[in-house]
């Protein structure tokens, strides 16, 4: 039982990363019918942006002699600032990489996405060299043991911040006019301009939101696993992509649930089978689910997407 609960805690943490990243894939796919294959690398960029914001902020705090500024305040600031900055990275990716290809065959956009990802990875290497950066320790680890299960304050924070962000996104999409426009675009792209809604702004917004969430995931990841690498987004990104598919086209709830489900499947497969087989078995389970639910949990088989 304790062993089980311990794994639940791990699964929730990994699920948080996957879910936050999956939301970006899912929103962009839902709204623009585009797989943004650079999204995993935006997660990486977000982690690095977070690193620089954190380092800069710590310098600033110490040079101003504000030693008393609590670590969690710094962390919250880092998350917010890095989300904001990375949102613009996402907006730029849309503007420069994808917008010129709106009318082009889908394969062109996919190749462009992979290319953008490679540019981020090699650009990072070129700028920062091969040394691995270590994410600064913003909050000290406290370990709680509850009934034999150990939980750190960091894990609790990671899961709580992720859930909070997902809830905020849900509120945004359900309650604001921009969220309404995103939902409308997901349903019937062609008609949206006739409502006086500028398509390009909504496209940019969608990329910005997704990238901001990926940045949050990157920082939370950095808090849990402080070693950053230019390639850190690739495998995590692919897994989150699978979670987005599993969640169903453009479904926020679906992507979040599937992200957590993926975390659970991975962790529990690893407790039963040798860890070298983890991904193979985890992905087989997901494929099996998709056999029975080809459109994912909340995907719709049909939406009207004719040209006007």
């Amino acid at each position: 039982m304790e062993f089980f609960l311990q794994n639940v805690v791990n699964a929730l943490q990994w699920g948080s990363f996957y879910a936050l990243i999956a939301l970006g894939y899912s929103m962009v796919y839902g709204v623009l019918l585009l797989f943004n294959f650079a999204h995993g690398d935006i997660f990486m960029v977000g982690a690095y942006v977070g690193f620089f914001v954190a380092t800069g902020l710590l310098l600033l705090v110490s040079s101003l002699g504000l030693v008393s500024m609590p670590g969690w305040v710094v962390l919250v600031l880092v998350i917010l600032v890095a989300m904001f900055i990375t949102a613009f990275v996402g907006v730029a990716v849309e503007r420069i990489g994808y917008r010129p290809l709106r009318q082009a065959p889908r394969a062109s956009a996919a190749i462009t996405g992979l290319m953008i990802g490679i540019i981020f990875e090699t650009g990072n290497l070129a700028l920062l060299g091969a040394r691995r950066l270590s994410f600064p320790e913003l909050i000290e680890t406290t370990t709680y043991t509850i009934g034999g299960v150990t939980v750190t304050n960091k894990r609790i924070m990671i899961v709580a911040v992720s859930l909070l962000l997902m809830f905020a996104l849900h509120q945004f999409v359900q309650r604001t006019k921009w969220g309404m426009a995103m939902r409308a675009m997901a349903y019937d792209f062609a008609v949206v301009p006739l409502m006086g809604v500028p398509l390009n702004s909504i496209a940019a917004l969608t990329f910005g939101l997704g990238s901001a969430l990926a940045a949050a995931a990157g920082i939370l990841f950095g808090v849990a696993y402080p070693v950053l690498s230019p390639y850190m987004g690739i495998v995590v990104g692919w897994k989150a992509f699978v979670a987005a598919i599993l969640g169903g086209r453009g479904s926020i709830l679906g992507a979040a649930l599937a992200g957590f489900l993926l975390g659970f499947i991975e962790i529990f497969v690893a407790t039963i089978f040798p860890s070298t087989l983890r991904d193979l078995i985890a992905f087989s389970i997901i494929l099996l689910i998709l056999v029975f639910r080809p459109h994912g949990f909340f995907g719709e088989a049909h939406t009207s997407r004719l040209r006007l």
């Binding site: 006019k177 426009a181 008609v191 006739l194 809604v197």
Partner: peptide
């Protein structure tokens, strides 16, 4: 537009509000 093309996933009110974006 031809064929109405209302946003079926939004409520009636949301459809009307979106038009005032």
């Amino acid at each position: 537009p031809e064929g109405r093309r209302i946003f079926g996933n939004l409520t009636v009110m949301e459809n009307l509000k979106l038009a005032t974006f």
